[in-house]
Design a binder for these strands. Structure first.
Lengths: 172, 172
DNA sequence: TTATCGTGGATATTTATTATCCGCAATAGG
DNA sequence: CCTATTGCGGATAATAAATATCCACGATAA
């Protein structure tokens, strides 16, 4: 059982995007630079997030990404499912009916108990992820992390965020 | 996030081994046949299970595998960890400190909040798996599954199990 | 002694992940 | 209108991991 590295990147990017002001955006290249990731591959994951309506993207110069809704309404589950896909980790191959002494298909209408137990555990996992809001991640970071790290992160966002033309909110 | 197919095979084999009498064993080849799996690869997984002391193995003719302890003291978590390894699915690459504006290492002594949230969810997953005993899987199968399937499964075990020479328990 | 079985290593084969590149549409600014 | 920048999508390569097979070996029951 393994999660792709893209999940870590996606969550960090989403958390960083939670710090941009109003309708401003951050370009994918800027975020790739911030985390030392390959830009072209990070774009793939950011694209997944916008396909899942977690991020919004703006084309053209001054374009980039921003959160599609408030950080309070984005959970880690949203992000993990968007990047890793929605299929469960355990996939029942129904090997119980692959032996040589096959029974009639009607003997296997009831779902496999092993599959049920595995999926139940996965539901617990997803429930825990669904309880972790992006806003919690951000506020915990703001209050608990090293002040230098917080300051550097805020400075990076302030330096790279790009205000939109028809935006009513302005930066200092 | 994906679990290998070996997990399904391992759990089904363990459940089947819960049905053997006393110190009798089932050969890996027999179980591979029962589930339509490649024998040589299934042996790898069974080997993992015996390395983890979940199964015991007996060499020689009349050899094979049996549970190393009662099915009540074997959980799905035991099996999943034995087959998939004990490392968590989410591995924090510390990308927060890989950007161009690196701070001193002392700014990153506090653990990453994202990592903490992901690991917390994984703990929920493992807790749920730890609550699923192999004996529950077996008894649910016995009571809920199609009677033809139960009968076929018991018949298979009865036909292939091999009593050990110095065993005090005998089969009918 | 022989045939059967598990163990461990070496090694293909297949599949998934990671990463890069290029043409395209969108768009802000001149 | 023109150009430069950005995200999007597809094609493709490089890398890693899971899956599968084979063989030599030690153990052991008959």
């Amino acid at each position: 059982m393994k999660l792709g590295e893209g999940v870590e990147a996606a969550i960090h990017c989403a958390a960083m995007l939670a710090g941009v002001e109003g309708e401003a955006t951050l370009s994918g290249a800027a975020m790739a630079e911030a985390f030392g990731l390959s830009p072209s591959y990070l774009l793939k994951h950011l694209n997944m997030l916008s396909a899942a309506r977690i991020l919004e993207s703006v084309s053209g110069p001054a374009g980039g990404y921003r959160l599609a809704r408030s950080a309070e309404r984005i959970t880690l589950l949203d992000i993990v499912l968007a990047v890793e896909g929605r299929e469960p980790a355990f996939r029942c191959g129904e090997i119980r009916q692959r032996g040589p002494a096959k029974l009639d298909a009607s003997a296997y209408v009831k779902p496999c108990g092993i599959n049920a137990a595995m999926l139940k555990a996965e539901r617990a996992y997803r429930t825990a992820l669904a309880e972790a809001k992006l806003s919690d991640i951000v506020s915990d970071f703001m209050s608990d992390a090293d002040p230098r790290s917080v300051a550097a992160s805020c400075a990076f966002v302030a330096r790279h965020q790009r205000p939109q033309k028809s935006s009513s909110t302005k930066q200092a």
